[in-house]
Design a binder for these strands. Structure first.
Length: 467
RNA sequence: GGUCCCAUCGUCUAGGGGUCUAGGACGCUGGCCUCUCACGCCGGUAACAGGGGUUCGAAUCCCCUUGGGACCGCCA
C-alpha cells in the first residue's frame, strides 16, 4: 500500500469559509493520521473571479488553523499546458469533440426541456459533426451513454448513477480555458491523490469525473464526500447566518484550536469525547467515523469551546494573542507581565479575546462608575473604612496577596464590618462595575492604580457627606 | 421537474438486533459553593419522522411515505 495523499483545493474567489475549513481539516487530519501527505492546490481557472488577494487570505487562514501542507500551493493557472495536452489526447482518442453550439442556443434548449418536463442536458448536437477548432467553439467530453457508474464512497457507501444521466460536459471553454470537472481529474490523477476528500456537493460530479478517469486511463482514487454544514434554518451556510469566514472568527477573538475542535465534531465523533487536542485528533481521526448527514452550525457550542480553551490555555500565549486586540481597542497594554495577570484574572469569566477587553476594560483605562452605582455603594458608612484601607494599602506591596489580605482583615476588625459588606463598594471603586474578578486578584494586578482609585472614591464620599 | 444523498433530544452526537425505561455535550433550567460575575459540583428538561415488513426480539436490517439537502453552468 502506497502512501496516503490527500489534498485541499479551494478556489480563490472568496475567503476560506467554515465549510471549506472543515473539509480541509478532514483531509489534513486523514493525511496526518495515516502518515501521508497533504497537498494544497489553488483552483484558479476562473480568471474572472479569482484573485491573488483571496489566495493570500486563504493561505493565511490555513496557517492560522495550523493546517500545514507538504506540497504546493500548486496553481491551476500555471498548469494550462498540461490540461490542453490531455484535451488533445481525448480528442485524438475520439473521446472528446469540438462543439459550436452557442450559450444562447443551449440556454434556450435548457429552458424548453425544463418546461416540457425533460432533462436540461446537452442533446449531442455536435457530437458527430467532426468539427475542428474555431472561434466560439468549445471541447466537450463524449460521456458514456449507457451502463451505470457506481463507486464506493468511504463516507456515503455505494453510489450509482445511470450513465444516461451524464451529459457531454465542456472540458475546454471557448476562451481556451479548461473547466473544473476536467482539471480536477487531471490534477488529482497527476498529483497521485489517493483520497479525494471534499464536500458532498460534489457527489453528483463524481460519476462524470470517473468517466474522465476511465477515458484517460487513470487509476481511480478513493472518494470521501463529507456532509455539508448548514445554517440554523437547515439551508446551506451563508452570510445571512452570521460570520462564515474563518478569519472573521479570528477577528472576533476566537482561538484556532477552538474552531478546529468545533469543526471536527461536525459529522464526526469519537464516542463521548468533546475536547480534542490536535495531537489527539491526528491519532484518533478516521474517515470511518464520519457521519453521512449534514450538520447545523451552532455558534453557542463554538463559544463554549472557545471559553474552554481560554480557561485552560497557556497564559503567556493567551496574553500574546490578546495584545493586538488591546492595541486595536486603543488601550495601553502596559507590558507582557501585566497582560498575563489580566488574562489570569478574567479567563474564567470571558468567552473570547474581545470579551476579555470588554469585561476587563478597567485594567486599561481610567474608570468612572455610573452615578447610580456610586450613590448606592460609595456611601458615607464606607468612608472611614476606605480611609483605613488606603492608609493600610498605601504602604505595602500589593502583589503580595497575603499582606493585602492582612490589611483587609485588620481594617474589617477595626471597623466592625464583614468582608461581604465591603466587597461591592471596593469593586465599584476599583472597576466602576458590580461584576469583576475577585477583589484580591484585581488589587494585585492593578498594583499602583489601586490607591489612586480608592482615593477618588474617597473624595466622592467626602464631597457627598459634606453636602 | 430529473438525478443523487440524508433522517436519534432545539443543536452536535453515542448507538452498528437483545446490555436502550436510548448515553454524552451545547443551550435552557433547579440547587450547592460564593466578595460580585463567573468557574466548579449535584440535579432537571428534551429525541429514535410516520407506516409496513424481516426476526423470538429492531433506534439498529429491508420497503414505502413524508420531510430535508445537494446537483442539473463556457462557476468551482
Amino acid at each position: 500500500m502506497s502512501e496516503t495523499r490527500t489534498r485541499f483545493a479551494p478556489s480563490p474567489t472568496g475567503h476560506l469559509h467554515i465549510g471549506g475549513a472543515r473539509t480541509a481539516l478532514f483531509a489534513w487530519l486523514y493525511a496526518r493520521h495515516t502518515g501521508g501527505k497533504f497537498i494544497l492546490r489553488i483552483e484558479d481557472t476562473d480568471a474572472e473571479r479569482s484573485t491573488d488577494e483571496y489566495t493570500q487570505k486563504i493561505l493565511q487562514a490555513m496557517e492560522w488553523l495550523n493546517l500545514d501542507w507538504d506540497e504546493g500551493p500548486f496553481y491551476q493557472s500555471k498548469r494550462l499546458d498540461l490540461y490542453r495536452e490531455y484535451v488533445e489526447k481525448l480528442i485524438e482518442n475520439g473521446r472528446a469533440f469540438w462543439c459550436e453550439c452557442t450559450s444562447e442556443d443551449l440556454e434556450r434548449k435548457r429552458e424548453e426541456a425544463l418546461k416540457t418536463g425533460g432533462k436540461p442536458k446537452y442533446d449531442g448536437t455536435c457530437r458527430t459533426k467532426g468539427l475542428g477548432p474555431g472561434p466560439g467553439r468549445v471541447v466537450r467530453f463524449a460521456s458514456p451513454k449507457s451502463g451505470i457508474t457506481s463507486f464506493e464512497d468511504v463516507i456515503k457507501g455505494t453510489i450509482s448513477v445511470d450513465n444516461s444521466e451524464l451529459d457531454d460536459l465542456i472540458i475546454l471553454r471557448s476562451d481556451n480555458m479548461p473547466t473544473y470537472n476536467f482539471t480536477v481529474v487531471i490534477d488529482d490523477a497527476t498529483m497521485n491523490i489517493t483520497h479525494v476528500i471534499r464536500g458532498d456537493d460534489h457527489v453528483n460530479n463524481t460519476p462524470r469525473q470517473i468517466a474522465l478517469y476511465e477515458a484517460l486511463g487513470f487509476r481511480l482514487p478513493v472518494f470521501a464526500h463529507v456532509p455539508m454544514i448548514l445554517g440554523s434554518d437547515k439551508t446551506r451556510l451563508s452570510k445571512r447566518h452570521g460570520a462564515t469566514s474563518v478569519m472573521a472568527y479570528k477577528e472576533m477573538g476566537y482561538l484556532p484550536e477552538a474552531l478546529v475542535n468545533y469543526l471536527v465534531r461536525l459529522s464526526w465523533a469519537h464516542g463521548d469525547m468533546e475536547i480534542f487536542s490536535m495531537e489527539e485528533l491526528v491519532q484518533l481521526f478516521d474517515l470511518q467515523n464520519v457521519g453521512r448527514s449534514a450538520a447545523v452550525f451552532n455558534p453557542e457550542k463554538l463559544l463554549w469551546l472557545n471559553h474552554h480553551y481560554i480557561k485552560t490555555g497557556d497564559v503567556k500565549r493567551l496574553a500574546r494573542l490578546l495584545m493586538p486586540f488591546v492595541i486595536e481597542a486603543g488601550l495601553d497594554p502596559v507590558n507582557d507581565n501585566f497582560l498575563e495577570h489580566v488574562v489570569e484574572d478574567v479567563r474564567e469569566r470571558t468567552h473570547t479575546l474581545i470579551d476579555m477587553i470588554d469585561f476587563g476594560d478597567f485594567y486599561f483605562r481610567d474608570i468612572d462608575a455610573a452615578p447610580e452605582l456610586k450613590e448606592k455603594f460609595l456611601t458615607s458608612e464606607m468612608l472611614p473604612v476606605f480611609r483605613e484601607l488606603i492608609s493600610g494599602l498605601d504602604i505595602i506591596d500589593l502583589t503580595d496577596r497575603k499582606m493585602t489580605e492582612n490589611v483587609f482583615s485588620n481594617v474589617l476588625e477595626k471597623c466592625g464590618i464583614k468582608f461581604k459588606q465591603l466587597a461591592q463598594p471596593i469593586r465599584v471603586a476599583l472597576t466602576g462595575k458590580t461584576a469583576s474578578p475577585g477583589i484580591f486578584e484585581i488589587i494585585s494586578t492593578l498594583g499602583t492604580k489601586v490607591v489612586p482609585r480608592l482615593k477618588n472614591a474617597l473624595n466622592y464620599m467626602e464631597s457627598r457627606t459634606a453636602q
